[in-house]
Write a protein that binds this DNA or RNA. Structure first.
Length: 762
DNA sequence: CTAGGGTTAG
């Protein structure tokens, strides 16, 4: 008899891919036999009748539970040589592990071994093999095995139908279901549950009703799981009223049943109803679990009802569930949505084992309150700690990079996400399009867009918005037509992007047509933002009467944005009469809006009405309002250099200012010299005469001296570009032959040979 | 031996 060598007790040499370690973590280590004792008295070999290979099989199962399939396979071969037979229990475990680890190759090896070495395998092993193929996602193998089965157990029917249903292969699942019926086999509740729960939206309602009829005819009474599945089918198909009926008819309900209905109401934006259900649960004494709190907190978050959420939080603490990640994470999100970042952080710290979802919730929290630097900080620390990152996190990071205009970090994170295989999700890709577009690389944005096989509404919207902010309106409109041709439906945001493109290029007729047809032709009902865009389009184009008329006749009460857009137009086109109206209305709606004061100041100052101008400055001072300090920055070799007006802090200040002097740039038309936002931010009226040290010019000058002669210069600015700096950039591009790109708070300006892509229209 | 529920984002 061959000698049986047992494996060394050192850690296994089998290396599993890192993402499969979870299986090892969940392994039951109590199953590990002490193989030292196995080795010392390998009595089973000496006395086969006594042990019948029991210990070897225990060891085999142990290896399998630890996910050590390679080692298990080696051990199997040794058992063969030793003539020790493999127990059905071992086969069962090996098949289960192969499935869990989605290791088709080992699964197949076990299946082959079972076929060739065991003459009449017990029926349950056959269905275990089937399960393994389904778990590995190899439906072809599963189907082949199934078709070859001589006797099909109910378990096998359940396994294959539920696998097909879960995988979205509904047609195949239904075919098998009717095959069962034709064979006179009655489907079990599990089969109905699988089929019902694969019906994800209202397009399956008819099918769902038919299945419901089958269930009734089959006479299954009071099966909580199945009745829950029926209720949830109606929920997912959008029939909340029917779902509620089905729910009320149930004699016995559990937490799962309640949760399903609450999800439905929350999705339908009827959060109050969901919370009412939660209260009933408490009243009726239903045993609550973590999932109930997840959805309850989501409902509170949707309502931004801080009081309600706090009460729920108290209840959670009473039950000691705040440490659970399934409760703690939605709790974090709830506080984030209620703008209570401090509480969110506290809730986060209580989670005993935060997962990637918890991290994405807290990162998106920082992103939502505008603390983008914090987002990046957390991201970097997670990256270095090797925490699992998901596509949600990357989406937030790309968003942060768009706002910070940090192309460097953005493209690094992009590469990182590719390595982790997280980019293939549309959400992430759309965020990438926006990130590249807002970092000034419309070309990369296009590349990402073109790499998407079937762009969805959001992806199309992202690229259209990208074109809009770069001022390529005709491209935006053409993309919109292509989108329609591809059968993708535009949504509210798509139209905002489209209108933005029109307003930046003065396409009044087009904008008007879209506004009139969006509801009838595209099924998107205009909201006030769309009208505000139209007001903006008219205003920029100088059609101020039309803009005012639209504000007065539109089906919404004008908001601050309506008047702000109009006021902006009045400034460009020097209309005091309408400007005054707009400013008054704007200040009524939002007395803290600094833009109103600055715009009115400029409007009067630009025509020499200094007293009127001063009145607005005084008002601003009295209300203790300050404009955000204007700031421009340029990134050189990954390092960001920031400038404010008159800045002399940069180590190369002398060089920068002498470069500026070189241009001897003088204003082209004196009448157009407004007091700019730069100046207004400092409150220095006398600045009017010396505009050479605006942050934007400093950044451009620094770009000129720090990059090769032919390199384009990309400058970012937190406020809108002023006319003077705009002229300066044009001049620089003409004299130096360099391409200058300026992103202001509104859009991109591409300067080339003395011309700007905005056509002086911004 | 199978089946029912939740949280993150553009």
């Amino acid at each position: 008899m061959a000698r049986l060598t047992l494996p060394p007790s050192s850690p296994s040499q089998v290396s599993l891919p890192p993402d499969k370690f979870s299986a090892i973590k969940t392994a039951n280590y109590t199953q590990i036999p002490t193989w030292v004792s196995l080795r010392s008295n390998s009595s089973s070999l000496k006395n086969p009748q006594l042990q019948q290979g029991r210990l070897e099989n225990v060891h085999l199962v142990s290896l399998s539970k630890q996910g050590k399939l390679k080692e298990a396979h080696r051990f199997l071969e040794e058992m063969d040589e030793a003539g020790v037979s493999v127990s059905p229990r071992s086969y069962e475990s090996l098949l289960e592990t192969s499935g869990k680890l989605r290791s088709l190759s080992y699964g197949k090896l076990i299946h082959d071994r079972l076929r060739t070495t065991v003459e009449n395998p017990p029926g349950f092993l056959e269905s275990r093999v089937l399960q393994m193929y389904c778990d590995c996602g190899s439906f072809w193998d599963a189907r082949k095995l199934f078709d070859e089965m001589r006797v099909i157990s109910m378990a096998s029917w359940v396994i294959i139908i539920s696998a097909f249903a879960r995988e979205g292969l509904l047609k195949d699942a239904l075919k098998l279901f009717s095959q069962m019926q034709n064979m006179g086999i009655e489907a079990s509740p599990s089969i109905y549950i699988s089929l019902l729960s694969s019906l994800l939206d209202s397009s399956y309602l008819e099918l769902g009703k038919q299945l419901h009829c089958h269930v009734i005819k089959s006479g299954f009474y009071d099966n909580v799981s199945m009745d829950t599945a029926i209720t949830n089918m109606y929920v997912k198909c959008g029939c909340l009223d029917i779902a509620e009926l089905a729910f009320n008819r149930m004699n016995e309900k559990n937490a799962v049943t309640w949760t399903g209905l609450m999800v439905g109401y929350t999705k339908a934006e009827k959060q109050e109803h969901a919370i009412k259900l939660f209260c009933s649960m408490v009243k009726e004494g239903v045993e609550l679990d973590e999932f109930v709190f997840s959805i309850t907190l989501k409902a509170c978050a949707g309502l931004k009802d801080l009081e309600m959420g706090r009460q729920v939080h108290g209840y959670i603490m009473k039950l000691g569930l705040e440490y659970e990640v399934t409760v703690g994470t939605p709790l974090v999100d709830f506080y984030v949505k209620c703008r209570s970042m401090e509480s969110a952080c506290r809730a986060f710290e209580r989670i005993s084992e935060p997962n990637d979802v918890s991290w994405s919730a807290i990162i998106s929290g920082y992103s939502q309150i505008g603390e983008f630097d914090d987002c990046i900080k957390i991201f970097n620390s997670l990256r270095s700690k090797g925490v699992v990152l998901n596509d949600f996190i990357y989406t937030s990071i790309f968003q942060a990079c768009s706002v910070l205009a940090d192309l460097n970090l953005g493209s690094q994170a992009h590469g990182d996400a590719i390595k982790r295989g997280l980019v293939s999700y549309l959400y992430g890709e759309s965020a990438l399009i926006t990130m590249y577009a807002k970092c000034g690389r419309l070309d990369y944005a296009y590349k990402v867009f073109e790499s998407i096989d079937e762009p969805d509404t959001v992806a199309w919207t992202a690229i259209i918005a990208g074109c809009a902010c770069h001022g390529t309106a005709s491209e935006a409109l053409s993309l919109f037509r292509q989108m329609r041709a591809c059968g993708v439906r535009p949504n509210t945001v798509t139209f905002i992007a489209l209108f933005t493109a029109c307003s930046h290029s003065g396409l009044i007729t087009e904008a008007k047509q879209y506004l009139e047809s969006m509801s009838s032709e595209y099924g998107v009902h205009p909201i006030i933002d769309h009208y505000d865009c139209m007001v903006d389009t008219y205003s920029r184009a100088g059609q101020l009467e039309e803009a005012l008329e639209l504000i007065r006749t539109m089906p919404f009460k004008p908001d601050a944005m309506s008047w702000k857009s109009l006021l902006g137009g009045c400034l460009i086109h020097r209309d005091f009469k309408i400007g005054e109206i707009a400013a008054e209305r704007l200040l009524e709606l939002d007395p803290e809006d600094t833009a109103a004061y600055v715009l009115m100041f400029n409007l009067h100052a630009s025509s020499g009405h200094w007293e009127e101008a001063a009145r607005y400055r005084r008002m601003m001072a009295e209300r203790d309002l300050r404009k955000e300090v204007s700031c421009s920055w340029v990134s050189i070799n990954g390092k960001v250099h920031r400038f404010i007006v008159g800045d002399r802090h940069h180590p190369q200040t002398e060089e920068i200012y002498s470069k500026l002097q070189e241009f001897k740039f003088t204003r082209t038309s004196n009448e157009n010299s407004f007091l700019t936002e730069d100046d207004a931010s400092l409150g220095l009226l006398e600045r009017k005469e010396q505009l050479l040290d605006h942050s934007e010019k400093l950044a451009i000058a620094f770009g000129l001296i720090s990059t090769p002669n032919n390199a384009p210069i990309v400058v970012f600015k937190n406020l809108r570009a002023c006319k003077d700096c705009h002229d300066f950039a044009k001049y620089v591009s003409k004299v130096t032959g360099r391409q200058v790109v300026v992103r202001d708070s509104n859009r991109f300006h591409h300067f080339k040979s003395g011309e700007c892509s905005c056509g002086d229209y911004w």
